[in-house]
Design a protein around this nucleic acid. Sequence first.
DNA 1: ACACTAATTTG
DNA 2: AGATTAGCCTA
Length: 571
Amino acid sequence: MDTPLDPDHCYPALLARDARFDGVWFVAVRTTGVYCRPICRVRPPKRENCRFFPTAALAEAAHFRPCLKCRPELAPLARRWSAMDATDVLAREAVRWLDECSPEMATLPALAAHLGVSERHVRRVFTAVHGVGPLQYLQTRRLLLAKQLLTDTAMPVSEVALASGFGSLRRFNASFADHYRLKPSALRRTSQEATAAAPDTVELRLDLRPPLLGRALLQFLVARAVPGVEQVDVEAMTVLRSVRLSRPGAEDLLGWVQIHLPPDDTERAQVRARLSASLWPAIATLMPRLRRWLDLDADPAAIAAALGDELGGPATGLRLPGTIDRFELAIRAVLGQQVTVAAARTLATRLITRFGERLPPALGAPDGITHAFPPPERLAAATVDDIASLGLPARRAQALITLVQRWPTLAYAQGRGEVTAAIAELVELPGLGPWTAHYMLMRGWSWPDAFPPADVVLKQRMEQRADRALKPSEVAAAAQAFAPYRSYAVLQLWREAAQATSARSARSASGRDAGHKVKHTVKRTIKHMVQRTEESTVKGKAPHASPVATRRTTDPKRRARSAPRPPGAAS
DNA sequence: ACACTAATTTG
DNA sequence: AGATTAGCCTA
């Protein structure tokens, strides 16, 4: 259960509008019946009129309605990874399942069946951890999503009701009026010319805890962007990609999403997400995934503190790129084994061409977005030879096939259980080593505390910081200092390495270096850029770069950094 | 600088 | 319910 909120602690934070607590708790004001985020820019309520709640659902259960100004539905979520016992894990899984499943499926019996425990137990555990029952949580979430859609989009009210997960317009109207003391149309009176231009898309807003280093996030994504599926424009600060959504109890949906990140120095940063109309029925599922993809729930201040001044300073606001589709990420992690980022992208491109699903023209996808990543069923039909023909060694093709076949049963795939168990299960798979497992958890689960073992770049950067050679065990020990946010240290160290490399290659390109120095530079460059993983079989081979991978390294990646965007890149 | 919105307080 | 306050938008 959440620790009770201490007004002595919360009230000053409220007066200070401390963003660190945004989404961590809400303040409800007795005299008005409204609850707000701590950052709300309204006249501060008197202390004796305040009540503090750890979640929006609890505030609503106490009959408060959300503020129309600070919009609690946009708030970043509170994250809890540490101190998880079995009860916490079960409650977390329950929330994720409720978030992701289709409305018809969202019943207590179905939830209990999914979790493999009795209904009574689900209810007890859920209430103990979240303070409200599963259905009340769901109700709150639906109402808040409806509120957002009414405010941000021109979507017809009947569509809003369905997209938010209500069974009928009538029940939606009744529920909305009941809880919020407002008619749905009351949120609609603002002018909607903005969306009139593109009636078959909706644009949503997502809030976060500033700062956001959007450029760094885009640079990570652009290096891995697969043509036809993803299009990143670092200058315009946009990401465009196709989306496949699979939900328990419903058919897959295809569509696309365009993300617009705010400039890095924006004070009140807000991300915008434009969605194709095809995705409306699954907005509830998509929103949390978008948040995890871009790591909008991160708490930069806490991360920077854990990383220390030297590393945490430059990393303040750095995000851990996650994924919308954990299956896609898993496959691409295997494709990326033992090869450079650029080579992995080439392989992924071939995979898309061969197995991807062409987007129907009716989706109205912007130019350049042509395919969706194949679902597990589709790849399950492939043979080892099919996969190997993409340019993978037979061994790795086999590893990929095994992963696909085991996918439906993996705890990792379902986001079930604890990190250590998920890693253990993944490492059991042939051809999948600890580096890949860590990487998969780091991005697929948004696990903040990964530190991929035996990573060459990480070892070098850690040695440089320690100013001496380190054994692998010493690297791991030194990384303990960054817990529980080692993933962010990883990102920052990778980033430093990439920046050092581009600085060196820029210097050598300008021809100011002496000959022997240039040679040295090139060698270092290659070492830094070969971001590979040991193909850790169970036998455990030492990592080494193949000459082929090494030669490919410098060239394509440098080109990728300054690649002009194709014409017609929508923005 | 100004009109406007939404919340909070006051009576 | 009316008055006040803070912040936002538009001019």
